[in-house]
Simulated assay, not measured.
Amino acid sequence: MHIKAIHHIAILTDDYEKSKAFYTDVLGFTVISEVYREQRNSYKLDLAINGLYQIELFSFPDYRERASFPEAKGLRHLAFLVDDVAASAAELKAKGVDVQDVRIDEWTGKKFVFFYDPNGQPLELYEQ
């Protein structure tokens, strides 16, 4: 097997419109496709990041809350690469997103910051 790249990351939401606005208007992802699947009573929204990777945003009526605190097994967070963490964090704050303080990775010396999407999914900005 030769894995070439990450194809997509799936995120489940309980408030589809709020999450769609967050990922498109706040984070700036572009919509690849959007479909309502009547048999599942569910939306599926495919989003692009610079045309390279996708996030699949799903709405399902039967969801479970994410177990995060204390730390839960499984996907811990999703990190996005940016040129300037401080400027990006300030932009998020200006858009009403609660952002933690910028920190420095003790191993790489790079800046990073955490914040959450409307579903409580931990997200990170990591400086290139």
Results as ranks from 00 to 15, higher is better:
H2K: 12
K4N: 14
H7F: 02
I9S: 05
L12N: 11
D15I: 04
Y16L: 12
E17K: 15
A21P: 04
Y23H: 09
Y23C: 05
T24P: 05
V26E: 01
E34C: 11
Y36S: 11
Y36Q: 08
R40A: 11
N41A: 06
N41Q: 15
D46M: 14
L47F: 11
A48E: 09
I49Q: 05
N50P: 01
I55Q: 07
E56Q: 15
E56D: 14
L57Y: 12
P61S: 12
R64T: 09
A67K: 14
S68K: 14
E71P: 08
G74E: 04
G74R: 00
L75C: 12
H77M: 06
H77N: 12
L78K: 02
A79G: 11
F80V: 01
D84Y: 01
D84E: 06
A87E: 11
A90T: 05
K93R: 15
A94E: 12
V97I: 09
D101P: 06
D101N: 10
V102I: 11
E106A: 07
E106K: 10
G109E: 03
G109L: 01
K110R: 12
K110V: 05
F114I: 02
F115P: 01
D117E: 01
Q121H: 03
E124C: 07
L125G: 03
E127C: 03
